[in-house]
Design a protein around this nucleic acid. Structure first.
Lengths: 151, 151
DNA sequence: TATTGTTATACTCTATAACTATA
DNA sequence: TATAGTTATAGAGTATAACAATA
């Protein structure tokens, strides 16, 4: 991607939620990915750290649930985080199939730095969105995501 | 992904534009991808057909521009579309570096069918969004995408 | 020297299937 | 038999780099 000088979208693409959501999401994610590089985190890793903190030492399947990710993806992401000593896995005594994830002090520090970097990276987005608009978008997307039905 | 029975998002994820946009975009795209399968198109291919029709036999670099895709990606996608006889490439007489893309009659029919299928697939989304909300979202996303600055 | 398109290659994100170990 | 986590593998989507032909 090189020539990106305020181009105009085609009308039919500009009318498609799928297209718009995708393109905007990717752009935003590229920003966040870039901003997280110095912190040493990928966007999905930051998401996991956030959920681990919020849930307070959840088991892996809870993380998968909260992040809407497959448990195999969570395993893989946790491998990286554990290797870098940001989290520790602990086998539950009650049910030895389960592993509980806990933030290390380092993990906590990296989480703070990552969250700050991510917020900064999203300023590009917030610059062009009013608070009201953002609240509308937020509510719609949350509704849509949470309404996702199984089969 | 298996357990997706109206779960709740974590507060910190529900507050992140990057996260929400990404997740919603992926969900929507999965729907569209599924709906386009019987038509034999991928979402990006439908986008290209749309732009080809709107622009009226554009050269490849224009397609890349309008779709916000790399030209190598466009080359690859066109290879598939040409193979299936949905478009034809024609070397421009004026500038023999350029290739002009034209829809075949078959391509036109598939475009119509694809557009219909994609619209249907996005009803899940529109079911939970009011017209006003959608207009707000649409404008914000278009603004954001078009404002993407180079360096 | 710059631009159009092509080729070969590689990367990110995420999932499916089959497995192990419990329960 | 069902569940938690792991492993190996694969696929979609898109990009970068180097190149050929032409301008």
């Amino acid at each position: 991607m090189q020539t990106e000088t305020t181009k105009k979208l085609s009308p039919s693409l500009a009318a498609s939620p799928g297209y718009l959501l995708n393109k905007a999401a990717r752009m935003l994610r590229d920003n966040v990915t870039e901003a997280l590089k110095p912190v040493g985190l990928a966007p999905a890793e930051l998401g996991i750290l956030r959920v681990v903190q919020e849930e307070g030492s959840p088991m892996q399947s809870v993380i998968a649930d909260k992040c809407f990710l497959d448990r195999t993806t969570v395993t893989e992401l946790l491998d990286g985080l554990e290797e870098r000593k940001l989290v520790v896995r602990e086998s539950s005594k009650a049910d030895r199939r389960c592993k509980t994830i806990r933030l290390t002090p380092l993990g906590r520090r990296i989480l703070v730095r990552g969250a700050r970097a991510a917020t900064r990276a999203q300023q590009d987005f917030f610059r062009i969105v009013t608070t009201d608009e953002w609240e509308t978008i937020r509510h719609v997307l949350v509704r849509f995501i949470e309404a996702a039905s199984p089969d």
